[in-house]
């Protein structure tokens, strides 16, 4: 059972703020969904069958890429060819 405090904590981990007035609804929805996920408790984890996924490697070659101008085209916060981000410290 998830509490409103847990929901706030998950929001912090996910870097998503939650308005106080949304907290109760988010929490009750989470609990309904997680209760449904409890179905998975019945699944036995056995040695997995062979998947088709495999790592795909390629040569580390320099190929044409985005120009600095294109890379910065979608931000309003830029300075001397760099992205300007909020302060970390």
């Amino acid at each position: 059972m998830i509490t409103e405090r847990d929901t706030e904590h998950i929001g912090q981990l996910a870097d998503i703020a939650i308005h106080r007035e949304e907290l109760a609804a988010f929490t009750s929805r989470f609990n309904e969904i997680l209760e449904y996920f409890d179905l998975l408790d019945q699944v036995e984890v056995v040695e997995s069958i062979e998947g088709r996924e495999c790592n795909v490697f390629r040569e580390d070659e320099v190929i044409p890429s985005l120009s600095q101008q294109d890379a910065l085209a979608n931000t309003r916060e830029k300075e001397e060819g760099f992205f300007r981000a909020p302060r970390v410290m």
Binding site: G11, Q12, F26, R29, F30, I33, E77, R84
Partner: peptide
């Protein structure tokens, strides 16, 4: 844009709260 005057997490959290709809926030948090 995020508010660069605020700290990283504060700015990031607010931007994502206001920018994502309810279902997207729910799925990211789940």
């Amino acid at each position: 844009p995020a508010d660069t005057k605020k700290t990283w997490h504060e700015s990031f959290q607010e931007r994502r709260r206001d920018g994502f709809g309810e279902e997207v926030r729910r799925r990211i948090m789940l």
